[in-house]
Write a protein that binds this DNA or RNA. Structure first.
Lengths: 337, 337
DNA sequence: TTGAAAGCGCTAACAG
DNA sequence: CTGTTAGCGCTTTCAA
């Protein structure tokens, strides 16, 4: 419906010169006489001429668009990373095409395919919680389409990644718990094929050892991060002969669920049981008890991922994994002292 | 860097036929012989041929992309609406190009311009809280570029809009407060130029009248929705000779701030003061007291906005305002009975 | 039934 | 210094 946009031809016709002259004048080509250059640029400004990206794209074989796939759009963690990606991309004249996998492998595969149809120049991805096959990403790699993973990563020998120092973060959690006298620390982890699960489990084991606590397999649980399964796990943990006196989780939501359940059971936090989250959703401070959690530099993760994208675009072999630091923010839910 | 995508020409060369024959065969043109059609389609499938949207766009003068501008990306309210828009857009073969105004008029103007540069086929917008000038939108309208507003709307004689029934929603809030014995109901509204402010103020006045409460101008405040200014307003309201015994706000965040402040002052909710939010951010139930609020059909708002977009695209004169219903969800923060 | 050619908007090599 | 031309991938007349 929209009126046709202004083209170089329109400007050329109006000035009675050739299209190529206009094109060159617009980019200050030295061959063009100053008067013509000025006349063309004045008219372009006046008419508000904007080059047609489709034509450019066709010519240069690039769309200046980056496909971004996240597990969901409604979590602050991802929104904030997206904002970071968007900011850096914009500074490079790139747009973002956003897709959500809704934590679903099939939808993720579909999103990759859709973004490919849209001819994005590459993708920045955080894989879904179900993602345990990688064919759809390998296909991108084979076609030399730039790809970057963040947070939940895979194929890190082939693909640049941005992660946080999960081992260190969990170590800090365990030390903090330990200093507050908690001894039986339960970890409600995520699906075991996820990088964030395995690296945090490593940190868990290491942290226990560092603090002279012994590892009890019953306290390490892998869930699917869903509310129902989490509740199930909580019930099982609480009915152990020797139940945990502290919980931390793969993310804040899991621990909010724990908080709700403990509240129902009238178990006192942090006196009877201590809680620590992971990610610092911004409502962490609005909860009934302010939640101790691991703050992620979300904006920076986004910016970094975008940076790596542009490096990868120029260096097909590039596959660095950048590790960013997190911070333990101590609040009410774990402070007994 | 990426390898060139497969083109019609590649298929044509491989089959030793002309490009136009391949093009026709692919869309089952009746002129083409069944054998050739089959051969072409088989090869296209095998090679995973995908038409180049840039070439199509150049030809058809459309990008199949909708620009979406929201005040921020990190609020659940907007993320959820975006998900709705995206869903419907996808069903029509359209992509979404997302931009945030960060509640800033200048950034909004910039976003409109950027999206225009990207040649989106149109835009779906929720204006920033600062937006009191509309030149940037009028420019779109003049160029017959389809535009739809949602939630915070303007120019509704020219542009299709999706809003909720704000008057009715506020009426319900006032009635609910009144039934719970609250008599001095403060409304912390937003900037007065916003449609959501004015329509809710109407509802406020009407609701007071309907419930036999008298209007006290001191209890109706316009803020900028920022935390600092909100705190300022709260302090002023509480230090009135005759302070309010109930608050509701332009959104949940404002009321969360009230909740925090009251908590600091050890004022009891809902006994001494009742609270009602507006929007139902999903952490409303994680707050220290579960918040009574107005639930918005966010997903539906998004879907509807996208629907109107496609209607507008075919009917330049179309400018209906669709009103969706909300629901008052009663929780702890306002229940004295 | 199929092919050749023009054109969408732009750039760049090649002429003049 | 400026204009002509070809070509990016595709559809669509027009010719054969």
């Amino acid at each position: 419906m929209a009126k046709r946009h202004l083209s170089l031809k329109d400007l050329a016709t109006e000035l009675n010169i050739s299209i190529s002259t206009v094109s060159r004048a617009l980019k200050n080509h030295p061959d063009i006489s100053p008067e013509i250059t000025r006349k063309v640029q004045d008219l372009a400004l006046l008419r508000n001429y904007v080059p047609n990206p489709l034509a450019m794209g066709l010519l240069k074989q690039e769309t200046k668009m980056i496909g971004v796939i996240v597990p969901d759009l409604v979590t602050h963690f991802y929104s904030s990373i997206i904002a970071g990606i968007e900011e850096y991309a914009k500074s490079q004249g790139y747009f973002i095409l956003l897709a959500s996998s809704y934590e679903n492998l099939q939808k993720e595969i579909e999103s990759v395919s859709n973004l490919l149809k849209a001819r994005v120049d590459g993708m920045i991805v955080c894989v879904s919680k179900e993602t345990n096959r990688f064919d759809h990403f390998l296909q991108l790699i084979e076609n030399e389409i730039p790809l970057v993973f963040f947070d939940r990563v895979c194929l890190s020998e082939l693909v640049p990644c941005v992660v946080v120092d999960n081992k260190e973060a969990v170590n800090q959690i365990i030390s903090h718990f330990s200093q507050n006298g908690y001894k039986r620390i339960a970890f409600i982890s995520g699906p075991s094929h996820l990088s964030i699960s395995s690296s945090r489990i490593e940190g868990y084991l290491e942290g226990l050892k560092n603090n002279g606590l012994k590892f009890d397999p019953e306290l390490l649980r892998s869930g699917n991060m869903g509310t129902e399964e989490t509740i199930q796990i909580i019930e099982e943990l609480l009915s152990l002969p020797n139940p945990p006196d502290a919980f931390f989780g793969i993310n804040d939501m899991v621990i909010f669920t724990v908080m709700k359940e403990l509240k129902k059971l009238r178990i006192k936090i942090p006196d009877e049981i201590g809680l620590v989250g992971f990610a610092d959703e911004f409502h962490a401070t609005f909860s009934s008890l302010e939640l101790t959690t691991i703050t992620h530099p979300t904006h920076e993760i986004g910016v970094k991922a975008a940076e790596l994208f542009f490096i990868k675009k120029e260096n097909p072999g590039y596959a660095e994994t950048v590790v960013l630091q997190t911070q333990l923010v101590i609040r009410e839910s774990s402070s007994r002292n």
